[in-house]
């Protein structure tokens, strides 16, 4: 069949072009990478009715359904209406019209998260709850942003390689009298983290400066002398990305900020993007926008009206470390003389 398809318009609807002409892959949002297992039967139905019978666990935690013919898109969009309503509106509180037209935009990408503290013994935060809160802020927006949320500094969610990487950290408290000086936390910190603990007079002292807030000391402590303070804290990494031209690991923008700060900066994000892109949501994601604006401008705009909590730390400047493929002049073919 001869097709005349505007693939950019189709992409906006979350259907991605296939190498097979006339076929597309639907990418369904799963904010935080977790939904009720019952939705797998929906995935199965789409795959077997309109797709090629398979689905891909998307690299950004989407349900990705390849092999959907252009002609089936309307039927698929009508079918996923209930899912979109349940996930986006009912679960995440997204302010959007749900109709037979499918996803309104692909702009802000699915929010990736590790399993978080609903399951993981290492996690410091409920990544799912945060992902859902942020979904209602960033979606639906045509501006391109990638967010990953990790429950702890181990960063299994790879917050270091995304526009906005959010990492759950904890402020720990030490109960001097409950400590038996066994040194298990000292060992754990040296083994897993940044070696900020040491023994002094049969008790533990901490170099506050370099604590990454992972909570390994709490896990290791037999007496509960170490505990997390009830307030949740977050680290924000910015500007990380993959890519052919200049992939790079993100850099720390904020540390030990509260959830209010996270919510605040994410609310400023769309305005920042629009301003940098002169209100044209082109296909350029957040990290590049920080480059365009420059860090200081970014910082000013993204923190506009945001009240930082007293514990918060903010990067004064950022020195990016990109892998610039054009500059790898020392990497030569073996055969070159």
């Amino acid at each position: 069949m001869n097709h005349d398809i505007d693939i950019k318009e189709i992409r906006k609807n979350c259907f991605r072009q296939s190498k097979v002409k006339g076929e597309f892959m639907l990418q369904m949002r799963v904010p935080g990478g977790i939904v009720a297992a019952k939705h797998l039967s929906m995935v199965q139905h789409i795959a077997e009715t309109w797709g090629n019978g398979t689905f891909h666990i998307g690299t950004r935690q989407t349900f990705s359904l390849p092999g959907i013919k252009y002609e089936s898109i309307d039927a698929v969009n009508a079918y996923i209406k209930d899912y979109i309503r349940e996930i986006e509106v009912d679960t995440c509180g997204v302010d959007m019209d749900v109709n037979d037209a499918g996803y309104p935009t692909i702009g802000a990408r699915n929010i990736v998260a590790c399993i978080g503290n609903s399951h993981c013994i290492k996690a410091n935060i409920d990544t799912t709850a945060l992902a859902r809160k942020l979904e209602s802020i960033i979606f639906p927006s045509h501006y391109h942003i990638k967010i990953s949320i990790a429950g702890c500094p181990n960063d299994c969610a790879k917050a270091h390689f995304t526009d906005f990487g959010i990492i759950g950290v904890t402020k720990t408290e030490y109960d001097y009298d409950r400590c038996i000086g066994c040194g298990k936390c000292v060992e754990a910190c040296a083994h897993h983290a940044t070696r900020v603990l040491s023994m002094e007079q049969a008790k533990v002292v901490k170099d506050e400066c370099c604590c990454v807030g992972c909570g390994e000391c709490v896990l290791a402590c037999p007496t509960g002398a170490w505990s997390r303070v009830p307030t949740k804290f977050y680290r924000v990494m910015i500007g990380g990305r993959t890519g052919k031209k200049s992939p790079r690991m993100g850099k720390m923008f904020l540390n030990f900020v509260t959830e209010d700060v996270i919510i605040g900066i994410m609310k400023n994000w769309e305005k920042f993007s629009a301003e940098v892109l002169e209100h044209k949501p082109v296909y350029l994601h957040g990290g590049h926008l920080i480059d365009r604006a420059g860090y200081h401008k970014f910082k000013e705009m993204i923190l506009d009206g945001v009240t930082l909590n007293p514990e918060a730390m903010v990067a004064q400047r950022i020195f990016w470390a990109e892998t610039e493929y054009r500059s790898n002049i020392n990497v030569l073919p073996v055969a070159t003389k």
Binding site: I121, A123, G151
Partner: peptide, 15 residues
């Protein structure tokens, strides 16, 4: 109950 003072995040300690 010491709220959220348990070994794992969002768990309590009772002592």
């Amino acid at each position: 109950r010491f709220e959220k003072r348990g070994r794992y995040s969002d768990t309590d300690m009772v002592r």
